[in-house]
Design a protein around this nucleic acid. Structure first.
Lengths: 171, 171
DNA sequence: CAGGATCCTTTTCGATACTG
DNA sequence: CAGTATCGAAAAGGATCCTG
């Protein structure tokens, strides 16, 4: 195994620079409400925090795609692989295992002669799917803006490379 | 914000070869209408697709944290670094550069004697922030379920490791 | 303080071969 | 078909040094 399933220790830093603990339960999505005099963050971003770990996993490239793709009906292994362009068999297997372990997808094995395994979202996974979808929707809506921003950034950078004093060293 | 709801409308997906309607595993998600004979997916998942590329970036571990943290007020480089536990200077720089290039955060340099650089969300970045927040909120809400699912998975796996015939290869 | 450059370790990922 | 196991390439990431 290249990645143990039960590994917990060994990667922790002793730098616990957490001056203020996270706010209690209750997510506050109110924007621009910097009323608190503290430097408090509304959610824990420490490495040893569960949320960080989970966020890390569901924000994973392949996990995101799998969840987004598994809308409601179940898909077979090969179907998923066909849908997600560029994923290797290995990565799909690993991703599905992780999602299954996290209780987000269910794995159903049919004991037929040609093996058949169906993957579907669990009820928990379905709730996540909604959020993932909004992320995908956002990307679709704003992709042109991002592409434009990139072009502008690159153009400005290239321009500054010309007139940058002390930067160029041509004879 | 124009982000809107989390619940995506009825999306169209491709038809799977609907197998036996009875799932023995008991996984029963809400039945979804799948009477589309096309192999059409509602969003492009090809590698060369823009959405894939953008999704890849904003689904990045550090990018997600930076955006989630930059709620509305601007933060300095060191402040961000202090907030995000575990990030290195190199990674923070790279992440901020990427986000700036994508037009999601703005970088303001104050030409003071001790250099001061402020990072803040752009209007575009703010719209993404809302979505990111819902993802964070989801994780906070369901973290206990995920932890429980993991424990159950690991326990079941460990149990099967005992009685798994053909698995152990004792001499 | 902010960040560029460099070196090195760790992790990720894909290709391949094999099994049930 | 649906995986598992292994190996090597590649990318990500961290530590350190240095500059304006």
């Amino acid at each position: 195994m290249e990645e143990g399933t039960l590994k917990s220790p060994g990667h922790m830093r002793d730098t616990v620079t957490a001056p203020a603990p996270a706010a209690p339960a209750g997510e506050d999505t109110a924007d621009c409400v910097a009323d608190y005099p503290y430097d408090v963050k509304q959610w824990d971003v420490r490495e040893d925090c569960e949320v960080r770990q989970i966020l890390d996993r569901i924000a994973d490239k392949w996990s995101l795609l799998v969840i987004a793709l598994l809308d409601c009906e179940s898909l077979r292994f090969t179907e998923l692989r066909r849908e997600i362009d560029g994923i290797s068999q290995r990565m799909l297997t690993r991703t599905l295992r992780h999602l299954e372990r996290d209780g987000l997808v269910s794995r159903t094995v049919h004991p037929t002669v040609p093996p058949r395994v169906d993957y579907a979202l669990t009820p928990l996974g379905s709730t996540l799917h909604a959020t993932i979808q909004s992320l995908v929707a956002w990307t679709e809506r704003h992709q042109s803006e991002i592409v434009a921003a990139r072009a502008a950034y690159d153009a400005r950078e290239a321009r500054e490379a010309y007139g940058a004093p002390g930067k160029e060293h041509e004879g």
